[in-house]
Design a protein around this nucleic acid. Structure first.
Length: 596
RNA sequence: GGUCCAGUAGCUCAGCUGGAUAGAGCAACAGCCUUCUAAGCUGUGGGUCCCAGGUUCGAAUCCUGGCUGGAUCACCA
């Protein structure tokens, strides 16, 4: 707000001093580096052309003009071409008093009507969720929260891949060797049980391949012609022909998986407004392909397969229908995109999908455009990086996947151990303890994953596990809990205190000014996180805020040994800082405890 | 080979719509609990911002070329 005034006055100054016209938006005004005196810095190098004087002289003249024409400025200093401006103290107090009156500070006041669709999670039903899925789920959920805070009418969709050769593999293995095993009889979570048979299929398949290669088959032929693989394909054919027995097994096994997924989702704290199943959508898109053929946008090869030529767009030719007329992934995605457009007419269709599918979404957008869908521009692939382990990528076949449920269990144990060693939960009930450990362990995990830029690959080192000190979720949670503790110790409620704050009686320290400035930056960060679809910006902001507060807390008495009015202001400041921490963490899907 | 993404401290990451002496956390070392929670705070050491050019008053940031790593280019999803 004041930056804008400075810029306007600066434009005025340039016009008055140097008879040049520069738009207010073209001035560079930044927060002054902490090592220099001042609050805002005007970069004057670019003005030297107009003043025809060295930058320091220009800065001095500008500084004199600005301080002379703005009541909010108390003084200035010049370092080379940088004009550092100091703002009067009461400005910050006023600013803070206004901010705390605002309802739902930093968030949009109302929600727009047009939907904003986010697809995320989208698991396969043949194995349990792993660390890679966790990143996807946390990102999807957090981005949804951030977009809501930016006033978007968010619709979260999970598109479950419940059909295809992969699930047939699990089904086949279970049918052959499962002996009727169920989640109840085995004590295994449904998704883990199905995963077990998927692995078993793979093992047996490999054994067959080995034998066949021994008998003289090539590796490639062996993979495709192994009896197990043929049986799996046969099963898929039966499924597509609605074979009653196959469908029964399919429904049964999928129901186990869903129960398992639901449990994991619930524990992770993610949810969806809609769940779609590929078994119900995989046939969609065919009509659109037919339409494209009629229009001449697509072409048919002699064998009957349908293609689109994207070489003029810098891409290749892409298959849209197999020679037997069945659809592929792309066909399906064309169909679901169309359906979502028809249903929602959304502002955006955001797909949270890993960066290995960049090419796929490039093609999808271009195909839609070629097919005359002028809304193709709403499709946005939010591609996030891989989660790597110290040894490299996770590979399910090599058993190096980090299982989502196991990871959360381990984190819970670590949280329990650490907390009990610190001995702070002596008077907690069992219920309270459990909920606290859950909160801390998930806070650690979620923060660890969300603090890094979504687009980048990230490294997860299970050996070092996840720390609870430093730039971590628990560190932030701890700071929040400390604030709550202070608030509990004051006799007066903060609502009451807020009412009775008197501007004139408030003198602020430099630490308090810093905090107010950071709080003042919150709305901008929320907006920026929304523009960039980046929870990492929220995480980093929150960490900085918490660091600043901890420094303040350590050096400044809030309740003790201070005048009641001073204590009142400090309490309100602490309380409000706590509120921002809570809101930021909520945007990341992380809860904060009242005590820890 | 084509396309896309990344390369910053020993490690994990910020900073990237150009601005001052490049920042955090972890790890190492040295301090701080007789004041509100020490899961905290303070300090020290640690850098060829992959390399080479270019644009600019000014480049980690923008452009070009190269090097390294990753992803992708299926009648898979």
């Amino acid at each position: 707000m004041i930056e804008k005034t400075i810029a306007e006055k600066a434009a005025e100054a340039v016009s008055a001093l140097y008879r040049a016209n520069i738009a207010a938006e073209d001035f560079q005004i930044e927060k002054t580096n902490p090592e220099f005196e001042g609050d805002y810095t005007l970069v004057v190098f670019p003005l030297a052309r107009f003043s025809k004087k060295p930058p320091p002289d220009t800065a001095k003249e500008m500084g004199e003009y600005l301080v002379g024409h703005m009541d909010e400025l108390s003084g200035f200093s010049v370092v080379k071409g940088f004009l550092n401006l100091s703002v009067i103290e009461s400005y910050w107090v006023d600013l803070f008093l206004n901010i705390i009156q605002e309802e739902n500070y930093g968030f949009a006041k109302e929600i727009e009507k047009q939907p904003f669709v986010i697809e995320y999670s989208s698991p396969n039903t043949n194995k349990p969720l792993h660390l890679g899925h966790i990143r996807n789920n946390l990102l999807g959920y957090s981005i949804a929260e951030i977009m809501k805070a930016n006033g978007k009418n968010v619709v979260k969709i999970n598109l479950i891949n419940d059909r295809g050769i992969h699930i047939c593999k699990s089904m086949l293995a279970w049918q052959k060797w499962g002996e009727g095993e169920t989640p109840e009889s085995s004590g295994l979570k449904g998704d883990h049980l199905i995963g077990k048979y998927y692995v078993l299929f793979d093992q047996m398949h490999k054994t067959e391949i080995k034998e066949m290669v021994h008998r003289g088959f090539t590796e490639k032929d062996a993979i495709n012609e192994a009896p197990l693989m043929q049986a799996a394909r046969e099963m898929l054919r039966k499924w597509e022909n609605a074979d009653a027995d196959v469908l029964d097994i399919w429904r049964l096994m999928n129901s186990w998986v869903y129960e398992g997924f639901d449990e994991t989702y619930k524990r992770l704290g993610v949810d969806f407004d809609k769940t779609n199943y590929e078994s119900q959508t995989y046939l969609q898109g065919k009509e659109i392909v037919e339409e494209g053929l009629e229009k001449g946008v697509l072409y048919k090869k002699p064998d009957g397969s349908v293609w689109i030529d994207l070489t003029d767009e810098g891409l290749d030719q892409k298959l849209l229908l197999r020679s037997d007329g069945t659809s592929v992934y792309m066909t399906q995605d064309i169909g679901t995109a169309q359906r979502r457009w028809d249903e929602f007419h959304p502002e955006k269709l955001l797909y949270v999908v890993g960066n290995e599918q960049i090419y796929h979404f490039d093609v999808l957008k271009k195909v839609l455009k070629k097919l005359g869908r002028d809304w193709a521009g709403i499709v946005y692939h939010l591609s996030y990086g891989m989660v790597e382990l110290p040894h490299g990528r996770m590979k399910s076949r090599e058993g190096t996947v980090v299982d989502a449920d196991d990871l959360m269990d381990e984190m819970f144990e670590t949280a329990r151990k650490t907390t009990e060693e610190l001995g702070k939960t002596g008077d907690f009930s069992e219920e309270e303890k459990k909920s606290l450990f859950q909160m801390i362990s998930l806070g650690a995990l979620k923060y660890y994953i969300l603090k890094v830029d979504p687009r980048k690959n990230m490294l997860f080192n299970p050996e070092e596990s996840i720390d609870f000190n430093g730039n971590t979720g628990p560190f932030i949670q701890y700071t929040y809990a400390r604030i709550q503790s202070v608030l509990r110790k004051s006799e007066k409620g903060t609502a009451d205190l807020t009412q009775h704050l008197e501007k004139s009686s408030i003198q602020i320290t430099s630490g308090e000014k810093q905090l107010i400035q950071m709080i003042n930056g919150f709305p901008q960060i929320v907006a920026q996180a929304g523009e960039n679809y980046s929870p990492a910006l929220i995480a980093n902001y929150c960490f900085d805020l918490v660091k600043e507060y901890n420094h303040y807390y350590q050096s400044t008495p809030i309740l003790k040994r201070v005048e009641p009015e001073v204590a009142g202001f400090r309490l309100v400041l602490s309380h409000f800082t706590g509120k921002i921490i809570k809101k930021s963490m909520r945007l990341l899907g992380i809860d904060v405890p009242g005590r820890m």
